[in-house]
Every structure is written in structure tokens, then in C-alpha cells.
């Protein structure tokens, strides 16, 4: 009897030891300080989102292929309007007369803008719908780390979709790109991603106020589709709304990409790239400031947890 009791006591001790060690491990992870802690929080949240997203692999392939279908009517429309697949207006203002290549690049790059709107911008609302918003808000990490994690998880999706679409379109349109051009293009995408982070903050703060994101998201996406040089050069827009396009950093991402890849104009590409960088940083600062103010306001008014 005594022996049995001793064995049970020992088992309980081992279990307690295991529990304590697990608890300690969690504490150790949470109590990381400085950059290490931030990096851990951001990557953990990004990995969580990626895991969710990877549970629906069909969705990745769907969004890789369907936007390519939307491209085709533009090719038919162009073929009905000009001879030979070249447009004078596009060669004058877009750096290439090949309007289809122009629009193909636009549609592929718009995936980044889409990710900023639908993904990182709407992430907090998704958490609210999943019922995990309050838990995340109480966890010992900052809100910025949460939003950065949300944007980071979008990068995996962007890399997959954009790369596959470029490979498919490159094979169809026989694009030829040198190593230097490729490196410059990657640099453009990298800096555009800074804009994505900033836009994510900006949009998330708007969502915190308005809650129901459907209409707002659609309105933003439709407006950006018109204002950005996705399908046509900015010069095609009436002058009184063109300036709106010029203050959105993504516009310079599109323009510098085309300047490097299609027009092979390094000087112009570098100019657009620097404008992209400056505006992306400005957008980031504005986004962070706005988010912090809106968060404080919603907390004061009790709107934060309201569904």
C-alpha cells in the first residue's frame, strides 16, 4: 500500500515538473525583451495566419489563376481599338507601346495592393469575427507587432501569386529580363512592401472605427483600381483627379517596375523608386500615428470591443 502511494506521489511530482517546465518555457518565450521579443511576436502571428491560409490551398491557386482571366477582355478591347498590338499613347506615357504587357504587369502588381486591403487591413476584423480579437489584444505584445505580423503573413501569399503569374505571363508574352533588371524589380517589390505595411496600419485604423469592412473595402479597391496606373498611364486620368494617384506610394511601385522591366529606363526607374521609398515611409508614419490615435479613441468610447 505504502509503495503504491509512493509511486503515485512520484508520478504527481514528475507531472508537476513537466507542467512547470512547459510553463517556464512559455514564460521564457513571452518575457523575451527588445527586438528578439518583437521578432518572435511578429513571426508567431504571421505563422499563425499562414497556417490558416495554407489550410485552403485551393484558394491560393484560385487567386493565382482567376485574375489572369480578367486580363483577356482588355486584350480584346485593345485589339478592337488599334492595329498591331501597339498604342501610341502608351508608348508616349507608359514607356512601352505594348498595352497588353503594360496591363499584365499592372494586374499582377495589384495583388500587393489587394493584399494590403483585404489581408492586413482587414485582419483585426477577421480576428473579431473569429472571436479571438480580445485574446490577442490582452496578449503581452504591442498592437503594432500584431499588425506587422498580419502584413508579414501576406508576403508569403504575394510571393506565391506574383511569381506564378509572372512565370505564366512571361511564357505567353515572351518577356526577356536581364539579371540586373530582375534585381531592380525585386528591389521595387521590396520597397512596395514597406508601403503595404503602412497601408495596413492606415486601413486597420479605419476598420476599427467603421467595423463592417465590406463596403469600405470594395470602395477602396475600386477607387485604387481607377487612380493607380494599373491599366493605363496616369496621364490618361483627368487632371483634377490625377494628383490623388500621385500621392499614393503604390503608383510609383507600378511606374518604377515598368520603367525597369519594359522601358529599360534606369534613370526614370530610380527616380520613381526613390519617390516610392519616401512616400512609403511617410505612409508608414501616418499609418502608425493614426492607428495609435484611433485605438486610444475607440478604447475611450468603448467602441473597441463592439462587434
Amino acid at each position: 500500500m505504502k509503495l503504491e502511494l509512493l509511486e503515485i506521489k512520484q508520478e504527481i511530482k514528475v507531472e508537476a515538473k513537466e507542467t512547470r517546465s512547459l510553463h517556464d518555457e512559455v514564460l521564457e518565450r513571452v518575457n523575451k525583451t527588445g527586438i528578439r521579443k518583437s521578432v518572435y511576436a511578429i513571426t508567431s502571428y504571421a505563422l499563425k495566419n499562414l497556417k490558416h491560409s495554407l489550410r485552403y490551398p485551393g484558394s491560393w491557386f484560385y487567386w493565382m489563376l482567376v485574375p489572369l482571366l480578367w486580363l483577356i477582355p482588355y486584350a480584346f478591347q485593345g485589339a478592337a481599338l488599334v492595329e498591331g498590338g501597339e498604342s501610341e499613347f502608351f508608348s508616349q506615357f507608359g514607356g512601352t507601346g505594348d498595352y497588353f504587357s503594360y496591363i499584365a504587369i499592372g494586374i499582377v502588381l495589384f495583388n500587393i495592393v489587394d493584399a494590403a486591403i483585404w489581408g492586413s487591413g482587414n485582419q483585426l476584423r477577421w480576428e473579431q469575427k473569429s472571436g479571438t480579437f480580445e485574446f490577442l489584444w490582452m496578449s503581452p505584445i504591442s498592437r503594432y507587432e500584431l499588425l506587422l505580423g498580419a502584413s508579414l503573413s501576406e508576403i508569403g501569399w504575394i510571393i506565391f501569386v506574383c511569381t506564378c503569374q509572372f512565370l505564366i505571363l512571361g511564357a505567353i508574352l515572351s518577356w526577356s529580363i536581364t539579371i540586373v533588371q530582375l534585381l531592380l524589380i525585386l528591389l521595387v517589390i521590396l520597397i512596395t512592401l514597406i508601403g503595404l505595411f503602412g497601408f495596413g496600419f492606415l486601413f486597420a485604423s479605419i476598420i476599427l472605427v467603421f467595423k463592417e469592412p465590406g463596403t469600405l473595402t470594395e470602395l477602396t479597391e475600386t477607387s485604387l483600381n481607377i487612380l493607380l496606373p494599373v491599366r493605363y498611364p496616369m496621364q490618361a486620368l483627368p487632371i483634377y483627379i490625377r494628383w490623388l494617384g500621385y500621392i499614393i506610394p503604390f503608383a510609383y511601385g507600378f511606374m518604377s517596375f515598368r520603367a525597369f522591366a519594359l522601358a529599360n529606363n534606369l534613370k526614370l526607374g530610380a527616380l520613381y523608386l526613390s519617390l516610392l521609398f519616401i512616400l512609403s515611409v511617410v505612409m508608414w508614419i501616418v499609418g502608425v500615428k493614426l492607428f495609435s490615435k484611433i485605438e486610444q479613441r475607440t478604447r475611450k468610447t468603448g467602441q473597441l470591443g463592439a462587434y
Binding site: Q77, G78, L81, E88, F89, F90, R231, Y232
Partner: peptide, 13 residues
């Protein structure tokens, strides 16, 4: 309506 319209006028010049 706008993206197709603006694109059309841009292509046609």
C-alpha cells in the same frame, strides 16, 4: 465603368 473607359481612350489615344 471608368477603368474600361479610361483604358479604351488611352489605347485609342
Amino acid at each position: 465603368l471608368l477603368p474600361h473607359l479610361i483604358y479604351g481612350t488611352a489605347v485609342a489615344g
